[in-house]
Amino acid sequence: MKIAVTSAGSSLDSMVDERFGRCRFFIFINPESKEYEAVENIYTGDVHGAGVQVAQFIVDKGVSALITGNVGPNALRVLKESGIEVYAASSMSVKKAVENYIKGKLTKISNPTTPSRHN
C-alpha cells in the first residue's frame, strides 16, 4: 500500500504543500513501513491543465490515497474516478500528516476546494 503527500520539501519533516497541481514535491510513502520516495513536481511550470496532468501522474503511480491542501474540480474528478481517496491537511509536517492519516484523523475531501483552472 502506498499513499501520496504533496510536500514543500523532499523529507518527512517538510511541511505539507497545500497546493496540489503546483506543489514542489510528492512524497510517496508506505504508511506502515514508512518507506518513502520524494519526487519533484515537474509540472509546476506547465501552464496547460496542470491539475489534470498531476492527477494523471498520481494515478499512474498506483497510490490508494492522497494527502494535500486544496484540489480543483478537474484533478479531483481524475482522482475520484481512479478510486483514490483524497484527504486534507494543512500547516503540518508530512510525517504528522501521515500519522494523522493512520489514526483516521484527516478529513476527506469530496468536493473541489479551488475553482477550475481552464489553462
Binding site: 491543465g49 496542470a50 496532468q53 494523471q56 494515478v59 481524475v78 474516478e81 481512479s82
Partner: peptide
C-alpha cells in the same frame, strides 16, 4: 496539447 484528456483505470 491542452491536457484535456486523462486516462484513468479503464476509462
Amino acid at each position: 496539447a491542452y491536457h484535456a484528456l486523462a486516462r484513468v483505470g479503464k476509462r
